[in-house]
Write a protein that binds this DNA or RNA. Structure first.
Length: 475
RNA sequence: GGCCCCGUCGUCUAGCGGUUAGGACAUCGGCCUCUCACGUCGGUAACACGGGUUCAAGUCCCGUCGGGGUCACCA
């Protein structure tokens, strides 16, 4: 059991090279949940050192996605708590300071090899081994006595003997032989840090106590531990979570599914639906599948994070989303669905009594807000959009007299609500020796334009007397 | 290829030496019923393989096979 404490400081450190991916969202979620559970701090840091690929639009997309999901950060863009700035490109002076310390500690050195030198060495390696893989920096500048003026990168002086290990919160003890390490570049010639330096220095200077990230970073951890040790700083805990795979087992990408968080917003998913699904993809709490946000915070832990990669499953995702949608109060559902009604050209107020009455009717019939808006459509149009096939089948000329009678039967019913309507219609049917199913589908098509809808009397109640009678009489 | 991680129903998972291997999604069938859903009842379906250790192995160890990650002046 990991101790709770107020000293928990976790972070999510995305690179703004695209939208926020659902894999990234899950990484953020586990960190955020842990911070909220423990009363610790959740820090958002933007790792924008790849100038070529980083864009302002991506930064905004990440911020928007985090905000939509409701994962608020305690420190980060717009919230400086003294550990900022939170964009790595604004922290170059900090990295330079740490690099100086690393060099004087003998843990790093300046390397003056040019790109061409390295390309030559790499070509030589390939010629010998038949592959570019496995190339290691030959160490040309490692023991250099003189320091020529000029452009240089900073390299890690990696040990070649012994091993580096840590106890991963998810994967247990991991040990990697130092002979697999190499003198990798920590800082570019232009003073911009590379991932391992930036991440380690930021985690140190921001006081991060638990580094939780995707397990594609396992291999980076030894180098970062080396940096911590060279600086004489206490190590954080590490938790490496498995990746999310496509249903086919490949790395999940756009080709397989909607991977951008904001896609789910547009598709009418609930933030809580996304969070619930992502939480269960790689973490469990006994047999429970559906969690409120508060339950997630209360119950999340690292012990029950699985160490196997999980495959994305839209069907299950939809089920979780539908379950979350059903948990909404009518007024909350109304608020969420109004923009989706607007997209259909239907201007409806979230306080519209028809909407509030209809909301519980569509709730068990919808997965997303798009579905809900579709199911609500005919309540708010002057006339329903008619399914022509249904009309041909159920609204033939022979059916109209019956619907006229039905209209006459319900016309005087007061109040115009489901129970009185139902009993009035039932007793009429009894007299006529008819069954409800003899008239129900025709009435449904007349009222809604389609063959599937909530119960007939509920629909009538929402439509109200005027509209119901008009539609039955083919207004 | 080297190094690292992983292997329970199709999928997400529970399990932490003794279970008729449980739940959920999906799927199939029944019930409910004015349609469609919701709900509900039930079925099919899994410990990758081979060696150990042990009275006893899905649970521990080794190997094989399989999957994934990573080997950049990307992150």
């Amino acid at each position: 059991m990991i101790e709770l404490g107020t000293d928990v400081r976790v972070r999510f450190a995305p690179s703004p090279t695209g939208y926020l991916h659902i894999g990234g969202a899950r990484t953020a979620l586990y960190n955020w949940l842990w911070a909220r559970k423990t009363g610790g701090k959740f820090i958002l840091r933007i790792e924008d050192t790849d100038r070529e690929r980083s864009t302002q639009a991506s930064v905004q997309a990440i911020l928007d996605s985090m905000t939509w999901l409701g994962m608020d950060w305690d420190e980060g863009p717009g919230k400086d708590a003294g550990t900022g700035p939170y964009f790595q490109t604004e922290r170059v002076a900090i990295y330079q300071g740490y690099v100086d310390k690393l060099i004087s500690a003998g843990a790093a050195y300046r390397c003056y090899c040019t790109k061409e030198d390295l390309d030559r060495a790499r070509a030589l390696h390939k010629a010998r081994s038949g592959s570019e893989q496995g190339f290691r920096y030959p160490g040309t500048c490692r023991e250099r006595k003189t320091e020529p003026a000029g452009k240089h990168v900073i390299r890690l002086r990696a040990p070649s003997t012994g091993s580096t290990h840590w106890d991963d919160l998810i994967k247990g003890r991991i040990e990697i032989g130092n002979d697999t390490l190499q003198d990798s570049v920590l800082m570019r010639g232009d003073g911009i840090p590379l991932y391992n330096l930036g991440a380690a220095v930021d985690d140190i200077s921001m006081g991060i106590t638990l580094v939780a990230r995707g397990d594609d970073h396992v291999i980076n951890t030894p180098q970062q531990i080396l940096i911590y040790k060279a600086l004489g700083v206490a190590l954080p805990k590490f938790a490496h979570m498995p990746m999310i795979l496509a249903p086919s087992g490949e790395k999940l990408s756009k080709r397989h599914a909607s991977v951008s968080v904001m896609d789910y917003h547009e598709q009418g998913f609930l933030p809580d639906g996304v969070l619930n699904y992502l939480a269960r993809l790689g973490w469990s709490h006994g047999d429970q599948e559906i969690f409120t946000r508060a339950e997630l915070i209360e119950k999340f832990n690292w012990e029950h994070c699985g160490d196997t990669s999980a495959r994305y499953d839209l069907k299950k995702f939809q089920h979780v989303q539908a379950s979350q949608l059903r948990m909404l109060s009518p007024s909350t559902l109304a608020q969420h669905v109004v923009p989706f009604l607007a997209k259909r050209g239907l201007t409806v107020s979230a306080n519209d009594p028809r909407l509030l009455t209809a909301a519980p009717l569509v709730q068990p019939r919808a997965t997303t807000f798009i579905d809900a808006a579709d199911a609500l459509d005919y309540f708010f149009r002057p006339a329903p959009v008619m399914d022509e096939k249904a009309k041909a089948k159920f609204l033939g000329a022979d059916r109209l007299p019956l619907l006229g009678k039905l209209a006459a039967v319900i016309e005087p019913v007061t109040p115009f609500t489901r129970e009185p309507l139902e009993s009035a219609v039932k007793s009429w049917l009894e007299q006529e020796k008819l069954e409800l199913k003899d008239v129900a589908q025709s009435a449904r098509v007349a009222l809604t334009g389609r063959t599937a809808s909530p119960g007939l009397f509920e629909v009538m109640e929402v439509l109200g007397r005027e509209v119901t009678l008009a539609r039955l009489r083919h207004g």
